[in-house]
Amino acid sequence: MKQEKSIVVEHHNFQGEYRILRLAAASIGPRVKPGQFLHLLIPQLGERILRRPFSIYKADAEGVSILYKPVGRGTDSMKPLHVGDTVDIIGPLGNGYPELGKDKFPVLVAGGYGNAALYLKAKELPVKGVAFFGGRTAEDILCVEEFKALGWDVRPTTNDGSLGTQGLVTADFDPWMAEQEVQSLELFVCGPAPMLKAMGDRAIEHDFTAWLSMDENMVCGVGACLTCVIKRKTATGWEWARCCKDGPVFESREIMWNE
């Protein structure tokens, strides 16, 4: 984990409402593992004081990039960032996705910025399996061509039917799963909470492994403040686990969902 004054080297529209922000960060870039995130101090945030977490989309020796969508005070204030501006970042944070289990068949399931969060994992995985991407419209499904170029079998679903199958990711995933030897599947999931829960429930019911990247509001990002906690099952009940430090990636069986 490092804190670095990074420099904006690229910042523009990516697709739909999503924007790409690339930062020169020579000490953080080379340390990134797939599934980790950055904690970014937004310079124009004015009277708002807290950092915002962003999944790392790409990373190399020179720096890191993220994909984000302006949805609130923090992300809206990122829009005016210019090439050459300084952005204070802490990273890489969190545990990231584990290695693929022996003889397992990898499956990616993502929605929204989850596609960006899974890109490095998709690249690293020794076997390229099937990627189920869900979104409201075609515009919300990011990086389809990039995942295809890596060798993934990409199956998009959209709520409005503008790309792929109409419906939720489960509309494509469930019939596909029914034809697999399910115990050999290993899922890497990043997306909105209902998507995580749907995949986690299936993993438990059909007895396969699913790694879920949990999205909780964060304050410190390093495990100190105990804001970002979720209930993790233990032998006798449950304990709080910190998404920023103990996660954000958890196996489906570890998670106790809030009713």
Partner: peptide
């Protein structure tokens, strides 16, 4: 949870 909330210039916590 939620245990914290950002406010103008500061934050609330009830950890």
């Amino acid at each position: 949870t939620p245990r914290t909330f950002e406010t103008r210039g500061g934050m609330l916590n009830a950890i």
